[in-house]
Simulated scan of single mutants.
Amino acid sequence: MKNERRLGTLIGVVGAVLALSGCDDPLVPVELIEKARVLGARLEVEGAPERAAPAPGESARVRFLVVAPELDLETGYALQACFAEWSPSDLPACKGEPFARAERSTPDARAPVLDLVLPEYPADARVPRLLVRGVICADGAPSDEGGERCAPNAAPLRVSFDLELPGPDDAPNLNPSLPDDALTLDGEAWPPASARETACRELDVPEVPVGSAHVIRVALPERAREAVPPPIEGAPEFESLLVSHFATHGELERAFSPLPGTGTSLDVTVTWTAPATAPDDGELARFWFVVRDGRGGADFVERAVCVVPN
C-alpha cells in the first residue's frame, strides 16, 4: 500500500506540473515568459507552513504562482477543492462534491489562493488525494455563468493541482525551500528586489549590459530534500527535485534542471544572455525559480536585473 502511495504520487505530481506550466506555442521557448502563465502551486498547512499536505480537520492554503511580462498582473479566479478520482491516463476529476471554493470577481494583483479545511477521507479511498482545480483569469474576472470560464475580456488559465494526502502512519511531506541566499548571479549574492518599474536604471537591481552572458547558480540546502520512506526496492533513498527557471527577457540555457534522488549535489547552474537592445533608462528583466519535490511540495521565488545599453 505504501509503495502504491509513493508511485501514485510521482506520476500524479508530474501531471500536475504539466497542467500548471504548459506553454501552448511550440515556437516559443518554454523558459520565456511572453504572456500570462501559471508556473506552480504551493500548499501550506495553517500553523505549519513547511508541511505540504494537511491531515483531516486541518486548515490549509493553496497559493498559485501566476506570472506575466507586465508588472503587477491583475487576476480574478474561480477555484474549488475536492477529493480526487485519480487516473493514470488523464487529469484527475472530483470524486464527490467540492468541499471548498474560492472566487475573486474583482481582479487585483494579489496571488490567487484557496483556503480549505480538509474533511475526513472517503471511506472507499485507498490512496486519498486532494485536487484543486479551476480557472485563473488574467486581466479579468471569472464568467458570471459559472464553470471554469472567464469573462470575454480575460485570458483563461486553467489549473489542476493534485497531491497525495498522508495516511495515519505516514511522516508528513515537507515543502522544499528556496532561501534568499540560494541564488547567485555571476558569483555574487542575488537578493530579492523591490523595483516595480520597467525603467530600472539606478534602482535596487543588478545592472547588466545588453548582449552580456551571465551565470545563475541555485544552491539548494540539504534540507531542501528528504529521505522517502519506505524505500521501494531499487529506488533512490531520497526524493528527486526539479528546479525550473523562467525569464521575461533574454535567453536562458534551458527551462528545467532535474536533481535525481541518487545524486549528491543540489547545485544548479544555468546561463542567461541579456537581450541585444534596451532603452536608455534600462529594461527590467524578471526571473522566476520553482523547485518541486515530486510529492506535491514546492517553493518559488522571483529575482530581477536591469538591462542597460552599452
Rank of each mutant, 00 (worst) to 15 (best):
Pro191Ser: 14
Ser194Pro: 00
Ala219Lys: 05
Leu157Trp: 02
Leu183His: 03
Ser194Gln: 12
Ile232Pro: 00
Leu185Met: 06
Thr184Leu: 10
Ala219Phe: 05
Val228Pro: 00
Arg223His: 05
Glu197Asp: 06
Ala235Val: 02
Arg149Lys: 06
Trp190Tyr: 06
Leu220Ile: 03
Pro275Gln: 09
Val270Pro: 02
Ser265His: 03
Ser257Asn: 11
Ala195Met: 04
Ser212Phe: 08
Asn153Arg: 14
Pro152Glu: 14
Asp267Thr: 11
Asn153Gly: 04
Thr184Asp: 03
Ser240Gln: 05
Val210Lys: 00
Asn173Ile: 14
His249Arg: 09
Ala235Asn: 03
Pro229Arg: 04
Ala255Tyr: 12
Val243Asn: 07
His249Met: 08
Pro258Ser: 05
Trp272Glu: 01
Ala195Arg: 07
Gly234Leu: 10
Ala278Trp: 03
Arg158Met: 10
Thr262Cys: 02
Leu252Lys: 13
Leu259Arg: 07
Leu178Ser: 11
Glu237Gln: 13
Ser177Pro: 02
Ala255Gly: 12
Gly167His: 09
Glu237Ile: 09
Leu266Gln: 15
Gly167Gln: 10
Ser160Trp: 06
Glu148Gln: 15
Glu233Pro: 06
Thr184Ile: 09
Ile216Ser: 01
Ser194Ala: 11
Leu174Trp: 01
Pro191Trp: 11
Gly187Leu: 02
Ser212His: 12
Val159Phe: 06
Phe238His: 09
Ala154Trp: 03
Leu165Arg: 02
Arg196His: 09
Thr262Met: 04
Pro260Asp: 01
Ala276Arg: 11
Thr271Pro: 01
Arg254Tyr: 10
Pro172Gln: 05
Pro230Thr: 04
Ala278Gly: 10
Asn173Met: 08
Pro229Ser: 08
Ile232Tyr: 00
His245Ala: 14
